[in-house]
Design a protein around this nucleic acid. Structure first.
Length: 418
RNA sequence: GGCAGGUUGCCCGAGCGGCCAAUGGGAGCGGACUGUAAAUCCGUCGGCUUUGCCUACGAAGGUUCGAAUCCUUCACCUGCCA
């Protein structure tokens, strides 16, 4: 088997492929042009998308040529979710999201050199497609019976599915065909939930163009407790630093469940497997050191936000969760650590702690903030606040203008007075 | 088309005229224990100018001193019969 497939399999990433011997042969024979699609359903990609982007990177590193498709067209239609119909988004909004997401993907792939990646947008060909073309040229190759059998559609037959979403697989299949024609693309990668859409494309290429195209899907990232990965109280963990701060991003990985870390490292890290196995055995010996979590958090934060940001959030985490007194930190260290946190601005007279908890976003409402204090889960500079009426005092201020607000064990915010 | 039942807080699900912001479970949040982990135990879990007030039990009206609870209409869902 080709090296790249061997690596994916060893990492447990490989879910399904079309004829694996043929695929392996093609990959071994030389550069293969492949594509992965991302639909703009939000302004940013989130950690769930990271898998796909990094898998593309693995193929590019192995000498293959990536086409990154951002679905300006399919994003307007929406692929069927297992639960319910999607809300349609406004075309101008989707167009804006396409721009953001392209920018994010560009950081992970190499757009220079012999295996340069290319950005494509299915709006370029789909918007040209007339109803007649769609029904005569494409529709004839699709059997409704087979379309109904696809998992994504059959799951929705009980609750209902619009014609719009039902048609999604035709558009995605046509994307593969277009990329086959325009770029000689013969491999599509995706999450295992995309299997039906991807094979629909490979089928279409065979019927229309007589070509042979491959499909490869990777396992979806699930937490060991079976719940969806990448969600926190605040919603998804985004790659956009404006939506999820680099500090929050780093902390997300650092707080991974021990049981998830081996899988996360195999799926997301570029470290060779033997290194990952060494990290695992270290972790088993000294679980409290959370070696695996740190490695994961640092590698991914560096990858997504850059080495400089990563160093800053590591330093901030160390300062804020360190053993030392906050008062013992020099102002420069404190200031840069606090810069990574959500913040509440305050002025004199100094406000109530409850208001600061709500303003900083640590609590969603003042009622919740009061409750947090009553439960003993609110802290100013690591000292528990016990009085619901308490206000910030002058002696709480570090270097005359800062205070560290904490809710629970690990949610922090900065207060800046001035 | 006929008959019967349902629609409750983030989710599931009790309540069937006042003691209901509403039993219970799950998720979430906090505390204890730890390792910024898991499990466990305990607490909490609509909002606010918080001994009180406001908004909420599919939607709109009505009965009543008083309704999630009764009546009417509407919307949607589910069983049984055709």
């Amino acid at each position: 088997m080709s090296a790249i497939l061997e690596d994916l399999r060893a990492r447990g990433l490989l879910a399904q492929t079309t004829d694996i011997d043929a695929l392996s042969e093609a990959l071994a024979a030389g550069p293969v042009t492949f594509y992965t699609g991302f639909d703009p359903t939000a302004a940013s990609l989130h950690v769930g998308h990271l898998m796909q982007v990094l898998t593309m990177r693995r193929f590019q590193d192995a000498g293959h040529k990536p086409l990154a498709l951002v679905g300006g067209a399919t994003g307007l239609i929406g692929d069927p979710k297992p639960t319910a119909e999607r809300m349609l988004n406004d075309p101008s909004v989707v167009a804006g999201w396409v721009g953001h997401i392209r920018g994010q993907i560009e950081r992970f792939l190499d757009f220079e050199g012999p295996h340069a990646a290319t950005m494509v947008n299915n709006l370029d060909w789909t918007s040209q497609l007339s109803a007649i073309d769609l029904l005569r040229d494409l529709g004839k190759h699709f059997s409704v019976n087979r379309m109904l059998d696809k998992e994504a559609v059959s799951a929705r037959l009980a609750t209902g599915i619009s014609y719009t979403e039902f048609s999604y697989q035709i558009l995605q299949a046509n994307d593969y065909l277009e990329l086959y024609r325009r770029h000689g693309c013969t491999l599509q990668l995706g999450g295992s939930d995309q299997w039906g859409n991807i094979t629909a494309g490979a089928d279409l290429i065979r019927r229309v163009a007589g070509g042979h195209a491959h499909a490869l899907t990777t396992n979806l990232l699930l937490k060991s407790d079976g719940t969806k990965f990448g969600k926190t109280e605040g919603g998804a963990v985004w790659l956009d630093p404006a939506l999820t701060s680099p500090y929050a991003f780093y902390q997300f990985w650092l707080n991974s469940d021990d049981r998830d870390v081996p899988t996360l490292l195999r799926y997301l890290s570029f470290r060779p497997l033997d290194e990952i196995e060494a990290l695992e055995s270290d972790s088993r010996e000294r679980p409290a050191a959370r070696i695996g979590q740190r490695a994961l958090a640092e590698e991914l934060t560096t990858l997504v936000h850059g080495a400089g940001e990563c160093a800053a959030v590591v330093a901030a985490s160390k300062a804020l969760f360190g053993q030392g007194e906050l008062a013992g930190l020099d102002e420069g260290t404190l200031r840069s650590a606090l810069a990574e946190l959500p913040r509440a601005k305050a002025s004199r007279p100094l406000p109530a702690v409850v208001d600061l908890l709500a303003d900083s976003g640590l609590c969603k409402s003042r009622s919740e903030a009061r409750r947090a204090v009553q439960e003993g889960g609110a802290y100013v500079n690591n000292a528990r606040v016990t009085d619901v009426e308490a206000t910030l005092g002058e002696d709480d201020l570090l270097h005359g203008r800062w205070a560290v607000l904490r809710r629970g064990k690990r949610s922090l915010a900065a207060v800046e007075v001035g």
